[in-house]
C-alpha cells in the first residue's frame, strides 16, 4: 500500500470504470465495459482497429472527457477533475507509452526525462534517471537526442519516459504493433519489469493477439462495444 498516496479505506481498486461512454458525434459513439483493476494487476485490452481502443485509453488518461460514466483512479474520479488539476494528476499518476515513440526534439534523452520530471512536479533526480535508463539498457544514450537512436532504443526510451515519474498506472497504446515476434516479447517483458519495479499497474491496449498469452487478465472490446469478456 505504500505507493498509493490516494489510498482510502473504502477504495476497492486502483482503477474502476463505471458505465463509461463517449461520443465524437451522433454516428460515432462508444460504450465501454465496466472494469476494475486492483493494485499491481496488469490488464490487456484487446480490440480490432477502429473499435475505440485509443479513445478508451485517452479516456482513462483523462485526455478526453467522457459523455457519461465515472473513472476512479484510487478514489479520485478523474472525470470530475479539470484543467490544471487534471494535468497535474495525470502527470503524477499515469505514464503513457505511445504507439510510436515521440520525444522533445531539442533535448537529449536525459533532458527529456528531466523535463518530464519537472512538468510532473517531481524533484529533479539525476540518479533516478540513470537508474531507469540503466534498467532499460540505454544509459549510454543519455546525452544523445532520442530521434537519433535506433528504433529499438527509441521504444525503450519511450518506456523510460512513461515510468520516470513513478506513475501508478502505465498505459501502453499498441506498443508492439510494429515489432517482430522477438522484439514484441522483449518489449512486453521490459514493460512488465518496469511496472513491477514501480509497483504499478500496466494496461496495454492493442489488437496484437500475440500478447494474449502474456497476460492473465484481459478484456476484449467487441464490435458493438457493449459486451466484454473477462478471462480468468
Amino acid at each position: 500500500m505504500k505507493y498509493i498516496g490516494l489510498s482510502h479505506p473504502l477504495h476497492i481498486g486502483m482503477l474502476t470504470i463505471q458505465s463509461l461512454s463517449f461520443e465524437y458525434d451522433l454516428y460515432n459513439c462508444f460504450e465501454f465495459p465496466d472494469l476494475q483493476v486492483s493494485e499491481g494487476q496488469n490488464l490487456l485490452v484487446l480490440g480490432e482497429s477502429g473499435i475505440g481502443k485509443t479513445t478508451f485509453l485517452h479516456l482513462i488518461a483523462g485526455l478526453l472527457k467522457p459523455k457519461t460514466g465515472k473513472i476512479f483512479i484510487g478514489d479520485t474520479d478523474i472525470t470530475r477533475l479539470d484543467g490544471k488539476q487534471l494535468d497535474a494528476f495525470r502527470g503524477s499518476t499515469i505514464g503513457i507509452v505511445f504507439q510510436r515513440p515521440h520525444f522533445i526534439h531539442s533535448l537529449t534523452l536525459g533532458e527529456n526525462l528531466s523535463i518530464i520530471r519537472c512538468v510532473g512536479k517531481k524533484q529533479p533526480d539525476t540518479q533516478k534517471i540513470k537508474d531507469v535508463l540503466e534498467g532499460l539498457g540505454i544509459l549510454s544514450k543519455i546525452n544523445i537526442r532520442p530521434h537519433l537512436l535506433s528504433q529499438g532504443e527509441q521504444q525503450r526510451a519511450s518506456i523510460a519516459m512513461a515510468v520516470i515519474n513513478e506513475p501508478k498506472f502505465i498505459l501502453a497504446d499498441e506498443p508492439t504493433s510494429a515489432l517482430d515476434d522477438k522484439n514484441c516479447i522483449k518489449v512486453i517483458e521490459l514493460l512488465k519489469a518496469q511496472t513491477q519495479r514501480n509497483n504499478a499497474s500496466l494496461i496495454i491496449i492493442t489488437h496484437d493477439q500475440r500478447l494474449k498469452s502474456e497476460f492473465s487478465h484481459s478484456i476484449v472490446l467487441s464490435a458493438k462495444n457493449l459486451t466484454s469478456v473477462i478471462n480468468g
Partner: peptide
C-alpha cells in the same frame, strides 16, 4: 506546428496549459 505532439506530450506528463 511541427511540435504540436511535443506540446501534447508535455501536457500528458503533467504540464499545464499555462506552463
Amino acid at each position: 506546428k511541427g511540435r504540436t505532439f511535443e506540446m501534447a506530450l508535455l501536457r500528458t506528463y503533467g504540464a499545464s496549459r499555462q506552463q
